[in-house]
Amino acid sequence: MAKQYDVLFRLLLIGDSGVGKTCLLCRFTDNEFHSSHISTIGVDFKMKTIEVDGIKVRIQIWDTAGQERYQTITKQYYRRAQGIFLVYDISSERSYQHIMKWVSDVDEYAPEGVQKILIGNKADEEQKRQVGREQGQQLAKEYGMDFYETSACTNLNIKESFTRLTELVLQAHRKELEGLRTPASNELALAEMEEDEGKPEGPENSSKTCWC
């Protein structure tokens, strides 16, 4: 049966509590916005397929709790991400300062070569702005990241930033993906590799693991 997509990527949204990670995600996947969203506990994820450069990319976007106390969770979701959104709120200086801390978490837990972009969200709240656009640009430059100011509320730069991170991940994995655009290629896609990783263990093996 024909696959609905060519490749599967995992993207991750991180940043302080209340900067609007869930709202960014809902705007992107469902084109919806609710200002009084509930706080994220643990992880949630949503999926969306977009086409970039002729490739159908299925993106699985993991939404995290700003305050995560379970190390086991944190490590799990960083470990398998290929792209990461670092999100702050332009009306909160503190959330901007904290990007440094989030970057160091990424360095510690995420795989090497993970793609990152910086997002300054709530760009519609101009009257409450505490972080200048140039500060965002400056920080992004320091870390070698692309930068977007977004607004989930007014739908500013949402599609653009998600598409951009997807492109970056595609570029980073260009080698593995070569030949995807030629229909007769052998299907060497990341999605395939992912699935191989999780090869079922033999029954003896699995029954052993439950008793340990």
Binding site: G42, Q76, Y77, G198, E201
Partner: peptide
């Protein structure tokens, strides 16, 4: 869950 590899039995979806 076992067949999903090491992530399956972590059961991230149950934390909440």
């Amino acid at each position: 869950l076992v067949s999903l590899g090491e992530d399956g039995l972590q059961m991230l979806f149950c934390h909440r």
